[in-house]
């Protein structure tokens, strides 16, 4: 299925922004078509590098979507919206962000076996408390795809480790898929994904660095994978709470994901993550170009960015 996302209404200034990106990245015309990554062997170095890039995108894509409905929370200090660093499309939405910004948004991204994006979502649990990003994505997916039963080879990117409810949905609906994450949550009980129900498996992204030839570049360009990932991975981190406190700063007695969400460091990294989807380093550019994957990657990122700025909760393509 190839949706005509060219019909999505996007303001002219945002299209100009996209064209500028095209010139910066690859000097080719945007096709506005969802693209697959044919020829990339699952599990290869290139595969994991691309998964890391999409994970970076999925995490950063929370940024323009702070619309979970909280009317009380305030943006953290050092708010990127005030720094003029965001593109025109984001500025367009500025009026929506501020009243709703609560720092509790999480996003999810479903990729097919060729890493073509199939669905994207963001947490809107201030509107419906079950609408964590993962569950919202699955409910949206089910409306158009009620029969599909096997998701072997599919990748569900959930930057925050899925909770009990979302784990259950993923294991029930996206049977056999791999769930990639990098930020842990100290409040999680035992979940269906802990037991690989329906052969659905979780993968901690930083564990995959050793599979990437460009691991040092990925670590350098996307330092939050290590910084937020390793520090919050409590399965082998006995000092999780101490590490989290260092990351969050301040003197709060209680520390957890909410404090991390609302910390300045988190927001700073998130902003850099969103920005970094538009600028690949020369090493990554060279590698993706050589492998013939740059165009697919850029097309998908453009398409996703356009959809995200045009839709509210979830996108199923």
């Amino acid at each position: 299925m190839t949706p005509d996302i060219g019909t999505v209404k996007v303001p002219k200034y945002y299209q100009e922004e996209i064209t500028k990106e095209a010139q910066t990245l690859g000097k080719f015309e945007a096709s506005y078509q969802w693209s697959d990554h044919k020829g990339v062997t699952p599990g290869s170095s290139l595969w994991w590098t691309l998964i890391a890039l999409y994970t970076n995108f999925a995490w950063g894509s929370q940024l323009p979507c702070y619309r979970s409905g909280s009317a009380t929370a305030q943006p953290p200090s050092g708010d990127a919206f005030k720094q003029g660093s965001l593109d025109a499309g984001e500025k367009r939405l500025k009026n929506f962000y501020v009243p709703f910004l609560d720092g509790l948004n999480v996003s999810g991204l479903l990729l097919d076996p060729t890493m073509k994006p199939l669905a994207w979502s963001v947490n809107t649990n201030k509107i419906n408390k079950t609408h964590h990003a993962e569950t919202a994505l699955i409910l949206a997916w089910l409306q158009g795809n009620p029969k599909k039963q096997s998701f072997e080879g599919y990748t569900f990117i959930s930057p925050w480790r899925p909770c009990c409810m979302c784990s259950a949905w993923i294991a029930d609906v996206f049977r056999g898929c791999k769930v990639v994450w990098f930020i842990d949550d100290p409040g999680l009980p035992l979940r269906h994904l802990d037991f690989k129900v329906n052969k659905t498996e979780e993968i901690f992204l930083p564990d995959m660095f050793n599979k990437m030839e460009l691991a040092s570049v990925v670590k350098r360009d996307y330092p939050w994978f290590g910084e937020l990932g390793a520090a919050t991975y409590w399965n082998y981190n006995a000092n999780y709470i101490d590490k989290l406190r260092e990351l969050v700063g301040g003197t709060q007695e209680k520390i957890g994901p909410v404090e991390l969400f609302k910390s300045e460091k988190y927001f700073d990294r998130l902003t850099r993550s969103w920005e970094s989807t538009r600028h690949l380093s020369s090493e990554l550019l060279q590698t993706l170009t050589k492998a013939g994957q740059l165009k697919s990657y850029v097309n998908n990122i453009w398409a996703l960015r356009r959809c995200i700025l045009a839709f509210d909760e979830s996108v199923v393509v």
Partner: peptide, 30 residues
């Protein structure tokens, strides 16, 4: 319905290991 929400990460790790050691399947453990 499982309400097993430990207060610290180490508790969760211990619980998970304990359940795995017992060879519990999901319906038993969760």
């Amino acid at each position: 319905v499982n309400q097993n929400t430990p207060d610290t990460p180490n508790e969760r790790v211990a619980l998970l290991e304990e359940e795995k050691a017992k060879g519990h399947k999901i319906l038993d453990a969760e």
